[in-house]
Design a protein around this nucleic acid. Structure first.
Lengths: 205, 205
DNA sequence: TTCAAATATTAAACAATGTTCAATATATAA
DNA sequence: TTATATATTGAACATTGTTTAATATTTGAA
């Protein structure tokens, strides 16, 4: 039956329109700007309509959240052809911080936000995050097997490194770096990355 | 004039009562439970009354936030008589993570929360935070002067170390560690702390 | 084409939030 | 005792997300 197919297609198109609009609002003015009513007004529907396509606001936010992880993973994949795991890890650290600083709203949603979308971590919906985490973990694993990272296990090292970059990013994004003048933050991040690189990883090989 | 003194005293007492009640609600059920209306009900006043004593909700939250920093600093001070800066730094890392894990709500407010209290970072109200940061920075400085931390400057090393512990804490608190089973988190944190300690700091002395 | 049934959409309402403000109650000083 | 100053209130406002009964539209068969 063709009508049913069309119906389903239209339903999907409407879902896409809602998500697209939500992303638009998100990019324009951050997550605070993404309200059911704002989305509804922009697509010229009533607020209630949206609930025919999404269970709740969390589901919409989750779509934006997923898009963020797509962006990050695409960046990670750009490191695919770097053979040296040490170099790869170094570049991944820089890339991660660059992504965080240039996409603060996305980063916030992906790794910091709470009340905004409790849904995010509920189900097994962590796949996209898992994928990025594995990419890091695999590289760390290569470093260990290569003898560049020593005296630790894969998971401890991976969590330490992730924690390190996430810590810097989230302190900056959530405005907890009042102790240093705005201008020197970027420089300090650079110095910290170098400090970590110099000491955690050896180029002995 | 005695009445004026009493008036002022009563005003202060009322402020204290409001803060005390807010903290009570906070400890009972987290920051979500701290609403102007809930505080008002608990002290048997109308919601509007609270605005005779505080400009807005942010000022009340800020008081709780400050209490958190008092708690943390008290813990740091307990390390005062450790002479060896390396040992001191190691213990400070453990202590910081312990504080974060045992006072998740406080930690959230102090280092992660956003919308809840924009006021927090507005003014020069960062003093209590600065104090704790300086305590860490001074210890790192001692390590550098002692030759235990090398090839870096004080600020890069301090930010790196703070970022590292904050990163782990905030990832856990905001539920971004779905990739590892609940039970192994504590163990991984331990391993990560050890990993960092082993490599960033040398006991050469 | 027509019309009952299914589906989509809406407007209004609900509950909860922080905040404001005119009206009221209370306390103070003369 | 009374006028003034202060404290407190209750209702209202604006803003959320969400639900739901009522309406509008579309569909498929007669």
């Amino acid at each position: 039956m063709s009508t049913e197919d069309r119906k389903e297609r239209e339903k999907l198109e409407m879902r896409q329109l809602i998500i697209k609009t939500a992303m638009q609002l998100f990019k324009e003015d951050g997550i605070e700007n993404v309200s059911i009513r704002a989305i509804a007004e922009k697509i010229e529907y009533s607020p209630g309509s949206i609930y025919s396509y999404f269970k709740d606001k969390g589901e919409i936010i989750h779509a934006i959240h997923t898009e963020g992880f797509e962006k990050l993973y695409a960046l990670q994949k750009s490191l695919d052809d770097i053979k040296d795991p040490v170099e790869k890890l170094r570049r991944m650290g820089e890339l991660y911080m660059k992504f965080a600083m240039e996409n603060k709203d996305y980063y916030d949603l992906m790794f910091i936000a709470k009340g905004v979308a409790d849904k995010i971590c509920e189900k097994q919906e962590w796949d996209v995050g898992q994928r990025s985490y594995n990419y890091l973990r695999d590289t760390v694993k290569d470093c260990i097997e290569n003898g560049n990272i020593i005296n630790t296990d894969v998971d401890s090292a991976t969590f330490a490194i992730w924690g390190f970059v996430h810590g810097m990013a989230s302190l900056i994004i959530r405005g907890r770096c009042a102790m240093m003048p705005e201008e020197v933050i970027a420089q300090t991040v650079k110095g910290s990355l170098q400090f970590i690189n110099t000491h955690l990883i050896s180029n002995s090989n």
